[in-house]
Amino acid sequence: MQSVLTQINSVPGVVGSMVCNDEGRLAAQLFPPLFDTTMLQDAATYLADSTIGLQDSTGGMGLMDLRFADARIVVRPMAHSLLLLLCTRAVNMQLLSISLNVAVKKLERLVATLPPESAPVPAQAAPDKAANTGGAVAFAAPVSKAQAPAEIKSSDKGVLLTIQVLRKTGGSYWDNMMEMVSINRVTSVFLSDHFNTGAFKKVVLTNTRNNKKKKFPVSVIKDDREHLYDGKAIVSLASMEQLGVTDGDQVIASIDVGGGMFGWENI
């Protein structure tokens, strides 16, 4: 099923995709790592509950297209299941519809073979860029086996983090996600404790090679039980260009205590 989702994600403008059954149980997903499994499972539950009402009131739903300021959510009903796509605002719906016509038939056959009560799908990263031939979202580090929490180093200047760049081809997702940084829960707690700030919404990153400095909004990767992102700052292409960094570079992370930061929920 992952191979079919990879084909869907290769359509320019598609950020991530997932399949759930008509009871809201997540069957498969292919989203960037900042979308944790719990978040996607909650979305699947809400989706299944909502589409029941839509089916009853409309007599059947062929496609649902929800439009937001910077994104679109496309839902395609299937036999006893639902396909949800997160897309950029500029996604080509005509091209996407053509791809879905082929993919939906394959997904329906695969969903039909799933056991009645399969376990929740673990978080998965999209394929590495080297293996990506269809323009799908590609990330610098693949999912690996669980490991012990990494040691995060700090100094009087701040917390030392390692850069990991999110790479995408065939779309404009990271153009729309201008200057965004993600860290996992372990790293966010370490930063908060180091600067004794409590909740925060932004972090200042300083490139240790060229001393370029920039303040970025941050998001937390909540579901990182494998500790893949301890001590890492996951940056968009726009953020990478602002700092002049690349994969593996070191940056100093600090919090502007006097900068009027407000609460960052669920840290």
Score class of each variant (00 low, 15 high):
residue 161 L to Q: 01
residue 110 L to N: 01
residue 205 L to Q: 07
residue 242 Q to T: 14
residue 123 A to L: 06
residue 260 G to L: 14
residue 125 A to C: 06
residue 212 K to S: 10
residue 186 V to Y: 09
residue 100 L to N: 02
residue 83 L to I: 04
residue 193 D to V: 00
residue 142 P to V: 04
residue 28 A to M: 06
residue 200 F to H: 13
residue 58 T to A: 03
residue 265 E to K: 15
residue 78 M to E: 03
residue 182 S to I: 08
residue 32 P to N: 12
residue 90 A to W: 05
residue 130 A to K: 10
residue 83 L to S: 08
residue 34 L to P: 00
residue 228 L to Q: 12
residue 70 D to R: 15
residue 20 C to R: 09
residue 146 A to E: 07
residue 48 A to K: 12
residue 45 T to R: 14
residue 85 L to Q: 00
residue 28 A to Y: 04
residue 209 R to P: 00
residue 3 S to A: 08
residue 229 Y to L: 04
residue 206 T to P: 08
residue 137 V to N: 09
residue 240 M to G: 00
residue 23 E to W: 09
residue 227 H to Q: 10
residue 195 F to W: 05
residue 166 L to N: 13
residue 259 G to M: 12
residue 103 A to V: 00
residue 104 V to I: 09
residue 169 T to K: 10
residue 159 V to G: 02
residue 190 F to M: 02
residue 195 F to S: 01
residue 177 M to A: 15
residue 31 F to L: 10
residue 138 A to G: 11
residue 93 M to P: 05
residue 80 H to D: 06
residue 147 Q to N: 00
residue 148 A to L: 04
residue 218 V to W: 03
residue 23 E to H: 11
residue 13 G to I: 08
residue 147 Q to Y: 05
residue 165 V to H: 12
residue 90 A to F: 07
residue 256 D to F: 07
residue 191 L to R: 03
residue 267 I to N: 11
residue 11 V to L: 12
residue 131 A to Q: 13
residue 144 S to F: 03
residue 113 T to V: 04
residue 137 V to I: 13
residue 250 Q to F: 09
residue 250 Q to I: 15
residue 214 K to I: 12
residue 171 G to H: 07
residue 99 S to A: 15
residue 173 Y to N: 05
residue 67 R to K: 15
residue 229 Y to P: 02
residue 120 P to M: 05
residue 198 G to I: 07
residue 115 P to T: 05
residue 155 S to C: 09
residue 139 F to S: 03
residue 120 P to T: 10
residue 94 Q to I: 04
residue 217 P to Q: 13
residue 260 G to R: 15
residue 46 Y to K: 12
residue 16 G to Q: 09
residue 264 W to E: 15
residue 61 M to T: 09
residue 256 D to W: 04
residue 150 A to S: 10
residue 69 A to G: 11
residue 78 M to A: 03
residue 152 I to N: 06
residue 208 T to C: 11
residue 94 Q to D: 15
residue 45 T to C: 09
residue 239 S to I: 08
residue 81 S to H: 05
residue 193 D to K: 10
residue 41 Q to T: 13
residue 31 F to C: 08
residue 253 A to Q: 07
residue 137 V to F: 14
residue 94 Q to L: 08
residue 165 V to P: 06
residue 179 E to H: 14
residue 19 V to W: 13
residue 239 S to E: 07
residue 47 L to G: 09
residue 164 Q to V: 03
residue 48 A to E: 04
residue 44 A to M: 05
residue 62 G to N: 11
residue 96 L to K: 08
residue 254 S to K: 11
residue 260 G to D: 12
residue 191 L to E: 05
residue 261 M to V: 12
residue 91 V to R: 02
residue 23 E to P: 00
residue 229 Y to V: 04
residue 190 F to D: 00
residue 224 D to Q: 04
residue 109 R to M: 06
residue 54 L to D: 05
residue 179 E to K: 12
residue 159 V to Q: 05
residue 178 M to P: 05
residue 109 R to A: 11
residue 257 V to R: 15
residue 178 M to W: 11
residue 146 A to N: 08
residue 79 A to K: 05
residue 68 F to R: 14
residue 36 D to P: 01
residue 50 S to R: 06
residue 24 G to P: 07
residue 240 M to K: 14
residue 65 D to S: 10
residue 170 G to W: 07
residue 18 M to S: 08
residue 12 P to V: 09
residue 58 T to N: 09
residue 231 G to T: 03
residue 183 I to Q: 02
residue 1 M to Q: 01
residue 87 C to W: 14
residue 181 V to S: 06
